[in-house]
Amino acid sequence: MADIKATLKALIIDTLDLEDISPEDIIDNEPLFGDGLGLDSIDALELGLAIKKTFDVKIEANSEKTKEHFYSIDNLVKFIEQN
């Protein structure tokens, strides 16, 4: 679980070129999009693709559940572990 978390944070920083952000800056239970880390919808697509490639999970594009999964690091880890 800690492994997935670290990989995920590194993946977010690397995929989205977040130069000024370190893994510690990404708080596990804070929102990734909008208020928290301030990512937007293009980032969501980019991140979805990277997660799909790295963890080999299927992400449904137009599902309310997907929104939930992408809410925070904690939610994403849960989602990846279940798949």
């Binding site: 293009i42 980032d43 697509l45 980019e46 693709l49 799909k52 490639k53």
Partner: peptide, 9 residues
């Protein structure tokens, strides 16, 4: 490969 949405856009 899947195309990068950001790059493609």
């Amino acid at each position: 490969e899947d195309l990068s949405p950001t790059q493609f856009a």
